[in-house]
């Protein structure tokens, strides 16, 4: 980062020379460096999260009691504890947990004895379907809309639209979801309201997610575009005959996307782990809902596996954002060797 700061300093050399004699590092190499750094960070993060989770889950209740059910007596409880290793001291349990964690063995679900990680993997494609559709819809709506709003923010039509976007940003996802169900499933009967039943069933959950995230992106892009349109380089381009569309799409938007990329990256991480409410509303068989059910039943092997997986994907999304930045901001691309 210090290198970037240096590059932005105005020239102060008495004799005109090239400012930066440093070797240019190819994007591919920088990408590799970023990845390596991220992977190391991720390992530490996973370790920390797993430990936290391990102790938190065991503070919240006795899984053996849940397993035994209402009819279970003391003898049954003892048996279950022994079977799942819950009778050993907590620190020993933790050691075993870590040892298995390294081998990516989260144990079996307490509910149905299936492999916990396997359960999580089963849910991934369903969750990702939703994430990808919502993400794409978000970008398709917000980039042109934001650019349009920001290009001439003083026009009446755009002021009204900007107000609508502002209001939309305040509507929580569960309200959008419930309104959509009421309208399209209950009243009109056009769309299925629960589960993953093909393309039609994707529309409402994806819309719910996109409707929650798009207004934020629209507002950031429109503010950034409005700011960029006042910059000196826009005047330079105008003085060279650039038309409005060139100014907006080729000059201003590119700069505006720098700020928006950070937000979009954060939104993707949110989608991966945080579409929980939406998945619950639409009974969507994804990772979020699996997590909620597992927490409710204290099925901690599954909770651990799910959180573990979400952490990985959140980190993946952040890393991807960093790499995207390398491509869109040339100022980050070069640094001293």
């Amino acid at each position: 980062m210090t290198d970037i700061a240096d590059n932005n300093k105005p020239a102060s050399q008495p004799i005109e020379t090239e400012k930066n004699d440093a070797e240019t590092i190819p994007v591919a190499k920088q990408t590799a460096q970023t990845l390596t750094k991220r992977i190391l960070e991720l390992l530490f993060l996973l370790m920390f999260i797993s430990t936290l989770l391990f102790f938190l889950l065991r503070l919240t209740g006795d899984p053996a009691a849940v397993l035994a059910g209402e009819t279970g007596d003391q003898e049954q409880l003892e048996l279950i504890r022994k079977q799942y290793g819950l009778d050993k001291p907590l620190i020993v349990q933790y050691g075993v947990f870590l040892y298995k964690l390294v081998q990516l063995d989260f144990g079996s679900s307490l509910a149905n004895a299936q492999d916990a990680l396997g359960l999580v993997f089963e849910r991934l494609p369903t969750s990702f379907t939703l994430v990808i559709i919502a993400f794409t819809a978000n970008l398709i709506i917000s980039i042109p809309l934001g650019a349009w709003l920001g290009s001439r923010p003083d026009r009446t039509g755009r002021k009204l639209a900007a107000t609508a976007v502002f209001v939309a940003q305040g509507i929580p996802g569960y309200i959008t979801g419930l309104l959509l169900i009421q309208l399209f499933s209950v009243e009109l009967g056009w769309l299925p309201s629960i589960g993953n039943q093909g393309i039609l069933s994707w529309i409402m959950p994806a819309t719910t997610l996109a409707a929650f995230q798009a207004p934020q992106v629209v507002r950031v892009i429109s503010a950034n575009v409005a700011e960029a349109m006042r910059e000196d380089y826009i005047r330079t381009a105008r003085a060279n005959g650039a038309g409005f569309n060139t100014l907006l799409w080729r000059h201003a938007l590119k700069n505006a996307m720098l700020g928006a990329t950070a937000l979009i990256g954060a939104q993707v991480s949110f989608l991966v782990g945080g579409s929980i409410i939406t998945e619950v509303i639409f009974a969507w068989p994804g990772l979020g809902r699996l997590l909620v059910t597992s927490v409710q039943t204290l099925d901690f092997p599954v909770v651990q596996a799910a959180v573990f997986m979400i952490a990985i994907f959140v980190y993946f999304a952040i890393t991807l954002t960093d790499i995207v930045f390398l491509f869109i901001d040339p100022r980050l691309r070069r640094q001293r060797a």
């Binding site: 000196d232 380089y233 005047r235 330079t236 381009a237 003085a239 590119k254 700069n255 040339p330 100022r331």
Partner: peptide
């Protein structure tokens, strides 16, 4: 727009901000 940059060219004051950074 055909006049701008083609018949009349202009050099502005601040070279630090006058070119598109990206």
């Amino acid at each position: 727009r055909k006049v701008r940059g083609n018949d009349i060219g202009m050099v502005f004051q601040d070279p630090m901000t006058g070119l598109n950074p990206v």
